[in-house]
Nucleic acid binder design. Structure first.
Lengths: 247, 247
DNA sequence: CGGCTTCTTGATCTCGATCAATCAGCGTGG
DNA sequence: CCACGCTGATTGATCGAGATCAAGAAGCCG
């Protein structure tokens, strides 16, 4: 109930600076005064935990709130006109969900819990009202969205061109970075999504993901046991992600 | 100098409603009162026209302003770490440039004029200051960015999976829609970008784009003479864009 | 222990990149 | 004005990455 907002707590502890990042830009800049953060926190309501496969919202439902993950993770799955499903995003603890729903006032996909997940709800009208009086908060929201936009654009045009191994390497580097930013180990983490989800997100077949994981393991880049991943050579992985595929 | 803002003029004339769109969501919603628009317009400064190949800004330059195209068109080209160039966006008249620069406070690529182009400059600090007093403007900006974000996500996961013909069909349908929204013909338009630019944007080789254009022409979907395009069967093109590629 | 789903591994085939050559357009300057 | 050269567009031929089909292995939960 009155537990401080997790992002808030994290920001206070770590005094995050406003550095760049690739896939996930949802860090809280230190510009935010703790006063603003407190009011940000006041708005946040804790929601009942979701169990695996539960939906936070469904595609087309009217947009009311943004959410911040406290623990657990979600995927967003969008169904296109021709009934194909695509995983469009993954969300990890501390990240904001729903920024892509503001425009259409509807959620653009199903948000499905990948494991038991707890969230904070940020009713957008109240948040938006706060931005009146707080330029920092206003700018923070602008920056969040702008960064996500830039990341999506970059990512898209990287992935469109890249070979499957580069795509998967990019994915791992990005995940590692996201865990690092949140204060978790960037070298050892659990990914609650299935191989199929990863494939859908990267535009690859399940079989390809599986084969690549095997190859990465042979090459000593990572080890994977089930959904637990150890990154052994982040530098090589980064080099691969930044390469043309063939080298 | 004191010419009214083109978008402003357009919005007054057409009383645009807030409908959904695919690739470009930069329509002005009718929510915006003309009072707000006037103040919006006051902020806008006309800039000197760019000639073909001129740069509006370069990658890494500090972000100061958003821009709205009055006439002409631009592409944004981002250079990745490994020195590859990717066309990340095209901008048509009436569309806003620079939303993806707010987050990092730097422009994420070179904005290059594809033809003689005139613009309006919107200094962001002044625009942002206006959002204090105008909830409509504030929400408009949020919605612009959110829509672009959603479009990029959808587009990415469509393109990642799709065959080359579906990609190109999607591109034409999107372009047609963008011209339609701005009051131009959706069936006949000039695209000032080269085949190479289109290929780069879609993640296809120039040769593939060229071959596909030939095939589309044979199939009676479009005709292209140089950079002038006629869309003959928008419905079939849309069906192709929404299909799985094989059908 | 069955009955799931998820993951892995193998074999084949297709789409599109790549290499290569020619052609068209277009502005420049002799 | 035309010849030249440059860039962009087209077309053809080859090859490889990855999708797809198919089958088996490994978890996972009731």
């Amino acid at each position: 109930m009155t537990t401080p907002h997790p992002v808030l707590r994290f920001a206070r502890q770590h005094d995050l600076n406003n550095q760049t990042c690739r896939l996930s830009s949802l860090c809280l800049p230190s510009i935010l005064s703790s006063e603003t953060l407190d009011r940000f926190g006041v708005v946040a309501k804790r929601t009942a935990p979701l169990r695996k496969r539960d939906a936070l919202y469904l595609q087309g439902m009217p947009f009311n709130s943004l959410y911040v993950i406290h623990s657990g993770s979600l995927k967003q799955v969008s169904t296109t006109d021709n009934q194909e499903e695509h995983v469009t995003s993954f969300f990890l603890p501390g990240e904001i969900i729903g920024l892509d729903a503001i425009g259409e006032q509807r959620y653009p996909g199903n948000a499905i819990a990948l494991e038991t997940t707890t969230l904070f709800e940020l009713p957008f009208d109240r948040l938006e009202a706060l931005t009146c009086s707080s330029p920092e908060l206003r700018n923070y929201l602008y920056q969040c969205m702008s960064k996500e936009l830039q990341n999506e654009r970059l990512l898209m045009h990287m992935l469109l061109r890249k070979t499957s191994d580069v795509r998967l390497a990019t994915f791992f580097v990005a995940m590692s970075l996201r865990f690092r930013r949140r204060g978790y180990s960037p070298y050892c983490f659990n990914l609650a999504m299935s191989r199929g989800d990863i494939g859908s997100y990267l535009g690859l077949a399940v079989e390809t993901v599986s084969r690549l994981l095997g190859r990465f393991q042979q090459q000593g880049l990572i080890t994977s046991r089930g959904r637990e991943f150890h990154i052994h050579d982040l530098e090589a992985l980064t080099r691969l992600a930044d390469s043309n595929g063939r080298c």
